[in-house]
């Protein structure tokens, strides 16, 4: 009888349709990255990243358009592997971090596209300026992890024009835009 009950309840549980699950971005284990690259003089790429950020998302594979994400970035944590350049990036010439210590992205809309790709629309606030951006995103994978949790990972990329965010320092014609690359792995709450 007990066995039957158990089997029945398990069947009932399995019958419940998959629901939007909430995930916390795995910054604890550093399985998430907020990186950028910008042309140097038009000759090569300069890579940098923000080391400190946090966020969460809700995601439902069957109802992708209902997914949501919010991300808060500590702009003070900018790291391009050069102390003097990072100091300059934090200054009023670029990120103005003493005045705008946080950058945020809050999604407004998800538009599914072919396969695992989708467009993630949202408001990006950077250097005190809020602007709607579209991140071309892709689900990389999801499933159980080896330690009893459940994870889902995504990557997204978008290109920002520095002037749009009131970053007016002239780095040359090839460096007017910066590409933002996000990779987030979420652990289901």
């Amino acid at each position: 009888m007990k066995k039957l009950l158990l089997a029945a309840s398990m069947a009932a549980m399995m019958a419940i349709p998959a629901q939007a699950a909430d995930y916390v971005i795995d910054t604890q284990g550093a399985h998430a990255f907020v990186q950028f690259k910008i042309s140097h003089l038009g000759y090569s790429w300069l890579y940098g990243r923000f080391n400190t950020f946090s966020g969460d998302f809700s995601y439902d594979a069957d109802k992708l358009e209902a997914s949501k994400i919010q991300l808060t970035i500590d702009t003070n944590s900018v790291d391009s592997n050069h102390a003097e350049r990072d100091k300059h990036l934090r200054s009023g010439d670029f990120l103005n971090v003493s005045k705008h210590p946080k950058a945020t992205f809050v999604s407004t809309k998800v538009v599914p596209k072919a396969g695992d790709t989708f467009d993630l629309h949202g408001n990006l606030t950077l250097n005190g300026v809020t602007k709607e951006v579209v991140i071309a995103a892709e689900k990389l994978g999801e499933g159980k992890d080896p330690w009893g949790g459940y994870r889902a990972g995504f990557a997204g990329t978008t290109t920002l024009t520095l002037k749009d965010f009131a970053i007016n320092t002239d780095l040359g014609p090839a460096s007017a835009t910066v590409q933002l690359d996000l990779t987030v792995e979420g652990i289901r709450k």
Partner: peptide, 8 residues
């Protein structure tokens, strides 16, 4: 201290 934070 400004210039050497990154070990350069």
């Amino acid at each position: 201290l400004i210039s050497t934070e990154d070990g350069r």
